[in-house]
C-alpha cells in the first residue's frame, strides 16, 4: 500500500487494543511503534519521528490531550485521537489542542484505516504553492482566487475562498467550528455559528452535485467541517 513504509506511533494503554491496531496497521504496510503512556509517547514521538500518531485520550499517567499539545509544539505530524467519550466537548478540546481527526471507540478498523490514509495523503499533497483544489467537476485556485465548474467560471466570495483555504490546509481532516470562525471572521465571532451555516450552504450550492448529501464539504455534526478533494 505505502511504498515508503510510513511509521505510525500508537499511544494506547490497553494491550488488547494495541494488539489489533498493530495487526491491522502492519497488514496495511505501516511500521508501528507502540507506547502505553503520555511519557513514553512523548519520548517515542521525539526519537522515532513517526509520520503520524494515534493517541488514546485516557492514558494512565495523564490525558492524551497533554501529549497532543507537547507533540504539536514541535511537529506538524497528523494526530488522530481515539476517544471513548460520547460528549462533543472532549473531541473539540483535543482538536483545538492540535489533533487533526478523531475516531470514537468502539470503532471498526476500516474506519480507522480510512482516517490514517486520508491524514497521510493530506500531508503529502499541498506542500506549498499552487493551491488548486479539485472537487469533482469544480476546480478552485486558492491563490489566484478563481474557480470553474465543468469549465465554466463560477464566482466565489472572498469569505468563501478564505473558508476553503482554511479547510484545505488539511484536506480530509476535521477543522472545528471555533477554528474556522476565528480564522475567517476573527476571534470576536468564535460563537457565531450561523455565519458558518450560511456560508456552508452557499458553498454547497455552488460546489456540490447534491447539496443535501455533500461529498466534498462534509459536516461533522456538533464539531466542525472536513473538505474532501478528488
Amino acid at each position: 500500500m505505502t511504498d515508503t513504509r510510513a511509521t505510525i506511533l500508537v499511544v494506547e494503554d490497553e494491550p488488547e487494543i494495541r494488539r489489533f491496531l498493530r495487526s491491522a496497521l502492519g497488514t496495511e504496510g505501516y511500521k508501528v511503534v507502540e507506547a502505553g503512556s503520555v511519557k513514553r509517547g512523548a519520548i517515542d514521538a521525539a526519537s522515532h519521528k513517526p509520520d503520524l500518531a494515534i493517541v488514546d485520550l485516557g492514558l494512565p499517567d495523564g490525558e492524551g490531550i497533554e501529549l497532543i499539545r507537547q507533540v504539536r509544539a514541535w511537529s506538524p505530524m497528523p494526530l488522530i485521537v481515539l476517544s471513548a467519550r460520547a460528549g462533543e466537548a472532549g473531541k473539540i478540546a483535543a482538536l483545538d489542542a492540535g489533533a487533526n481527526d478523531y475516531v470514537i471507540k468502539p470503532f471498526g478498523i476500516g474506519e480507522l484505516l480510512a482516517r490514517v490514509r486520508s491524514a497521510l495523503r493530506g500531508v503529502v499533497r499541498p506542500s506549498g504553492g499552487g493551491h488548486t483544489l479539485k472537487l469533482g467537476g469544480t476546480a478552485i485556485d486558492l491563490d489566484a482566487r478563481t474557480a470553474s465548474r465543468d469549465g465554466t467560471p463560477i464566482h466565489l466570495t472572498p469569505i468563501e475562498y478564505r473558508l476553503l483555504t482554511c479547510l484545505a490546509r488539511n484536506t480530509g481532516m476535521v477543522v472545528t467550528q471555533g477554528q474556522l470562525l476565528r480564522e475567517v471572521w476573527g476571534p470576536a465571532h468564535e460563537s457565531d455559528t450561523h455565519y458558518l451555516r450560511i456560508y456552508a450552504k452557499q458553498l454547497r450550492d455552488k460546489l456540490e452535485p447534491d447539496p443535501l448529501q455533500p461529498r466534498y464539504l462534509v459536516t461533522e455534526t456538533g464539531i466542525g467541517y472536513r473538505l474532501f478533494c478528488d
Partner: peptide, 12 residues
C-alpha cells in the same frame, strides 16, 4: 445549542 440548519444536520 447553536445555530444549525435541518438540512445540514440531516445530511450526515
Amino acid at each position: 445549542r447553536d445555530w444549525n440548519s435541518v438540512a445540514e444536520i440531516a445530511g450526515p
